[in-house]
């Protein structure tokens, strides 16, 4: 009787969150997989039409999908590695006995809590292609002609990458600071007695013991980068041409602008597969070892 009572209590507490999970995550996940085998538009009054693997075949032959995938990969590499590197560097600095470190931690974290839409709009103004843009007006002062930061295929994706690095550094920094603070001071004392310098401390103590943190940051950043949508949508619209189009932007264009929800679901599952494989690989090669002190 007691057991049943306990189970009911647990179920009672879990039900609200599980209902939300089921309605907004689990059901769409399964339903979009189902839709990926259908020709379907939200506008259609008729039931979705089964087309088998046609959407997947179309996807493999779709040059815009491949361009979008290439851009997403470039974006991911361009964002994840520098963000982690700079984030770690700043975490180390702000974990030392620096004056005003709390102020700097807050300052660097502000972009993380800023709305991405608002930040993208502000950055669009900063990177305006005319000499009215902040960056270009600075360049003009230096005698350099204004650059089309957001409207040339040379710079568009690069500009979006810079904005995302700026936006995410604070998050990575805070996670690394937490990781750094969990490393026992005694280990540094021991290696110091052995005559190690700052670099040896970092290489033999900090870096290995930050492996679980690095693994977490890498996985979440990788998934986040593959899902990039807002800054591209607002700052470049995926253009010029398809030079900054990413997978999620392409998915959105197909689903809501070209009214092909079945095909958009297929793109979503292609993205899901890529992320799934990457996460498995990451788990295999960057496996976070348990650290016992």
């Amino acid at each position: 009787m007691r057991k049943i009572k306990d189970s009911l209590k647990i179920a009672g507490f879990l039900l609200p969150s599980y209902s939300i999970f089921f309605v907004f995550i689990f059901f769409p996940l399964i339903y979009s997989f189902y839709l990926s085998f259908f020709h379907y538009s939200l506008l259609s009054y008729n039931a979705p039409r089964f087309t088998g693997l046609q959407n997947y075949i179309t996807l493999l032959k779709d040059p815009i999908f491949w361009v979008s995938l290439k851009n997403t990969m470039t974006y991911t590499i361009g964002t994840v590695i520098p963000t982690m590197g700079i984030g770690l560097f700043m975490a180390i600095i702000l974990n030392s006995k620096l004056k005003l470190k709390n102020f700097f931690r807050t300052a660097y974290f502000i972009p993380v809590v800023t709305s991405l839409v608002a930040a993208s709009i502000i950055w669009s103004l900063i990177l305006d292609s005319t000499d009215a843009g902040l960056v270009n007006s600075f360049l003009v002062q230096l005698g350099i002609p204004p650059q089309a930061w957001l409207s040339s295929s040379r710079w568009a994706l690069f500009s979006v990458i810079i904005v995302n690095i700026w936006k995410n550094i604070g998050y990575v920094m805070i996670i690394y600071i937490a990781g750094l603070q969990s490393i026992p001071e005694q280990l540094y004392e021991a290696i110091t007695i052995d005559g190690a310098g700052e670099w040896e401390k970092f290489y033999y103590i900090t870096l290995p013991l930050l492996k679980p943190t690095t693994s977490f940051v890498f996985t979440t950043s990788l998934i986040g980068s593959f899902q990039v949508f807002t800054p591209v949508y607002i700052m470049t619209g995926g253009g010029p041409g398809y030079s900054s189009n990413t997978i999620v932007n392409y998915l959105y264009q197909q689903g809501f602008q070209n009214f092909r929800m079945g095909y958009a679901s297929t793109i979503a599952y292609a993205l899901f597969t890529i992320l799934f494989v990457m996460t498995i690989l990451q788990k295999k090669y960057l496996k976070a070892e348990e650290v016992l002190y």
Binding site: S153, P240, G241, Y242, Q253, Q257
Partner: peptide, 19 residues
């Protein structure tokens, strides 16, 4: 037929860029 707007603008943008 979906609107040809995106197809046209993206291709012309590439022509302007000299692609």
């Amino acid at each position: 037929t979906p609107s040809p707007r995106l197809i046209l603008t993206r291709n012309i943008q590439m022509a302007i860029e000299g692609k």
